[in-house]
Amino acid sequence: MCPRNSLAALPWFHEALPRLDSPPTTAYPRPIMYKHRVIDEPGRRLLRMTVNDSAIEIAVRPHKTLLEVLREDLFLTGTKHGCELGECGTCAILVDGEPVLSCLVLAIACEGKEIRTIEGMADGPELHPLQTTFADLGAAQCGYCTPGFLLTAQALLDENPDPTRQEIKNALAGNLCRCTGYLKIYEAVELAAKRMRNGSDSEAKR
């Protein structure tokens, strides 16, 4: 049993494995073969998921984050990144309708999931009401944080069609924006919510 909880504390750990000052990717040890079950190799593995309503099949390596796969393999560069450590919210996307940070989710953990990115937010040529209000009210200045805000706000409105200002603040508390000071973003969310409520009202009446 190891004396401490950390791997590094084991004397043999560093002998058996290269330390980081040699490259971790190439100096990878040979895969350990497991007796009763073949363990996934660090090689590629087939992944099936739905991205913006299209079924996707793609071979990915286990350590690839969803962010990397979306941007670098699927060329969905609308998903942005600002830290890759879960600290800014820029990479937020929807997995089964819930906002999560694509920089901290493994792509292979998304097997069978429904992913929505900014590219799949508009309905064909029809902008999502949030996209319209963000554009019209100046809620996107440089626009870099915008995809993350839009998708997070969409999840909020899907769950709560009439959020208060405070509820909007709470829902968007995981997204940083350096340009707007958030105020125009709140206004855009409020206006979109109102339009969506009115829209569904009139549909219901019809």
Binding site: F75, T77, D136, A140, Y144
Partner: peptide
């Protein structure tokens, strides 16, 4: 007039290409 920015639609669609988006 409080008009939309000319590049706002691209921005809300995630179509604006920032430097790291170039491939």
């Amino acid at each position: 007039k409080p008009l939309r920015k000319v590049d706002a639609t691209d921005k809300v669609l995630g179509k604006t290409l920032f430097a790291d988006d170039l491939i």
